[in-house]
Design a protein around this nucleic acid. Structure first.
Length: 584
RNA sequence: CGGGGCGUGGCGCAGCCUGGUAGCGCACUUGCAUGGGGUGCAAGGGGUCCCGAGUUCGAAUCCCGGCGCCCCGACCA
């Protein structure tokens, strides 16, 4: 270590909040060079390469073949799939000296598709899966959390090519298995969650989320069965269908100054008409109707109203996932002017729906089942209506998964309560389908000599992100704690003494361990005090720390486990074999 | 893009309100001491005080304009 290019920091860097960022900088693994852009220093680069190697090995074991595209790409393929425009400002764009447009690849669907197209033309060549480990570029609106969300990052992306839907399912399964092996080997804890396919399009999709407080995704997990899903993909269990005819007729009541659900519930419970039968009203008895404006790719827009039980907010992420690829924007005062039938604060479903005179699309939460009765807006200022029955007094155009998901909501699979947690997306696999193959005209001849569009799967692992994810999951207040598989070394030897004999012994132990096949980090710094060396060792986080020092006069060295802090003294003569065993 | 905060040696910060030639801790260099938990003493090196324009005899400090960065949110395979 006396010659290792490393400088640890005693203080936390001011710009780092999350543990992985703080510790990777403090321990001398990475340095920031621009927002969301980092340099990997020697120790950090070893860890990054270790992760990369494990990922590569598992991909190759699964039968996928590695290629390597440029990061610098021409505009045309992305023009053909529409992504040159769709990707928007997130795409790093640049021009060459002839002013031709280029981009730095944010992901490589186009290139893989074109590559296969240029080489293959028969069903006999399929299936095939190709992958690469590449630096990707995305000009994120707000890079954050250090390595977790950078603008330049390393990603492994694979693509499968099949000519039948069944083949795609099989290729997807192979990738899923390979991902499980990969993340297990990396030492990450993770949950496989149902996901929405988002901007990429496609159908079946699962995310590998590493549970962690600082994760950007929220997911649910069932307390009883193995259901897990990103909140965006959680499905709501509808209640039983009620008999609309058994319900009493809807009644309009005057509800002055009740434009919020809270006010309405309070009012309802003090109003003679509404609580005449002693009924206690709750927010969940009300039907809240939220207006948004949908903007479509062709530039048109249309209002959409979402009906949810009044005790639930509309979750914007879920809403956006549900209406994708359309974009959601707020309903402005100017929009209300164009739709006088919508009375802010008093919107009721009686005038909504594509079949209604207003023609405004109306989608409801699945809990709003046919026959259910609600307290809701009367479409007149200061008036609400109760006993408004779905299917009788209004006709939704369908259901939508947009209401917030809450801890304790029933599992769609088994009904047991769900728990909520945060996670880092470390992998995403999905069945892309034929979108890109169609756009780029990737077809092969099938058994009947007919040209068929190839169907694709797309699979990503955030390699650099995985390094940060491990750091998030595996650290304590003293520093990092690497799983052995990706640790920069197996053993960190600390020599504490001014005595040459100690350094001689530590040095030869280091050599012996290396000869025995272990990766050794040897702190031979003479000037550093023991305290500094111990602190550094803990910060750096190599899983096994060996101390050669004062015990040497008695012929023993000390072996410490970084994670558990367990220590044992071992005679020098047995050191190599004991350490080998500890490190196996 | 909305909200908040911050730009002063490599890092973390004080100084700014109340203008007077830049300071502390860490790191670095040298020496002596120390040697099992960020050790002590002493001596050093290193700064366009984000940039520009202004007020002033004099600006890190006051005024105006700009830029950058970080955090929360929006956004994001």
């Amino acid at each position: 270590m006396s010659t290792l290019f490393l400088r640890t920091l005693r203080d936390d860097p001011a710009d780092a909040e999350v543990p992985s960022h703080r510790l990777l900088v403090r321990a001398g693994y990475v340095r920031r060079v621009a927002p969301g852009v980092f340099t990997w220093l020697p120790l950090g680069y070893i860890v990054l390469r270790n992760v990369e190697e494990i990922v590569r090995k598992q991909m190759v074991n699964a039968g996928f073949q590695e290629v390597h595209f440029p990061a610098l790409l021409p505009r045309e393929p992305y023009e053909a799939t529409g992504r040159w425009d769709e990707y928007g400002p997130t795409l790093f764009r640049l021009q060459d000296r002839k002013e031709a447009d280029f981009l730095l690849g944010p992901t490589h669907e186009e290139m893989f598709t074109l590559l296969v197209k240029s080489e293959y033309s028969s069903y006999k060549d399929l299936p095939v899966s190709l992958f690469q480990i590449q630096t990707k570029y995305r000009d994120e609106a707000r890079p954050r959390a250090g390595i977790l969300r950078g603008r330049e990052f390393v990603m492994k992306d694979s693509y499968s090519f099949d000519y039948t839907d069944g083949g795609l399912v099989e290729s997807y399964g192979k990738h899923r298995d390979a991902y499980i092996k990969t993340f297990n080997e990396l030492g990450l804890s993770y949950v496989i969650c149902s996901a929405t396919s988002g901007a990429m399009g496609g159908s079946a999709s699962e995310e590998f989320l590493a549970p962690c407080e600082n994760g950007e995704d929220t997911f649910v997990r069932c307390t009883a069965c193995d259901y897990a899903a990103n909140v965006e993909a959680v499905t709501t269990t509808p209640g039983p269908v009620a008999d609309a005819d058994a319900q009493q007729a809807a009644v309009v009541v005057s509800t002055p100054d009740c434009s919020t659900i809270d006010d309405l519930v309070k009012f309802a419970n003090s109003d003679a008409t509404l609580s005449s039968d002693g009924r206690v009203w709750k927010a969940e008895d009300t039907l809240k109707n939220v207006v948004v404006m949908l903007e479509f790719a062709d530039g048109t827009s249309a209002p959409l109203i979402i009906g949810v039980p009044g005790d639930r907010a509309v979750d914007e992420k879920r809403l956006e996932a549900a209406v994708a690829p359309a974009a959601v924007r707020a309903f402005e005062p100017a929009d209300f002017k164009e739709h006088p039938e919508l009375v802010p604060g008093y919107i009721g479903p009686q005038v909504l729906g594509e079949k209604s005179p207003s023609g405004i699309r109306y989608l409801v939460d699945p809990r709003v089942v046919p026959g259910s009765a609600w307290l809701t807006g009367a479409n007149v200022s200061d008036q609400h209506a109760f006993n408004v029955v779905a299917g009788r007094d209004f006709e939704p155009d369908g259901t939508i998964e947009a209401a917030e998901v809450r801890e304790g909501d029933p599992c769609p699979n088994c009904g047991a309560p769900l728990t909520l947690a945060r996670g880092i997306e470390i992998g995403h696999i999905f069945q892309l389908g034929r979108k890109y193959a169609e756009a780029l005209d990737l077809k092969v001849l099938d058994e009947n000599g007919k040209r068929v569009v190839v169907t694709m799967g797309s699979y990503g692992i955030g390699v650099s992100r995985a390094v940060a994810a491990v750091a998030e999951q595996s650290h304590d207040d003293k520093g990092l704690i690497w799983p052995r598989a990706i640790s920069p070394a197996d053993v960190h030897i600390v020599a504490t003494s001014k005595d040459d004999a100690v350094y001689a012994a530590a040095g030869s132990l280091a050599e012996d361990l290396e000869t025995a096949g272990l990766r050794v980090l040897y702190d031979d710094r003479r000037a550093a005090s023991p305290g500094v060396k111990f602190k550094d060792a803990e910060l750096i986080g190599v899983p096994t720390i060996v101390v050669v020092g004062r015990g040497l006069v008695d012929g023993v060295i000390e072996i410490k486990d970084r994670a558990t802090d367990e220590r044992r003294e071992v005679p020098v003569g047995e050191a190599v074999s004991v350490i080998l065993e500890v490190c196996s």
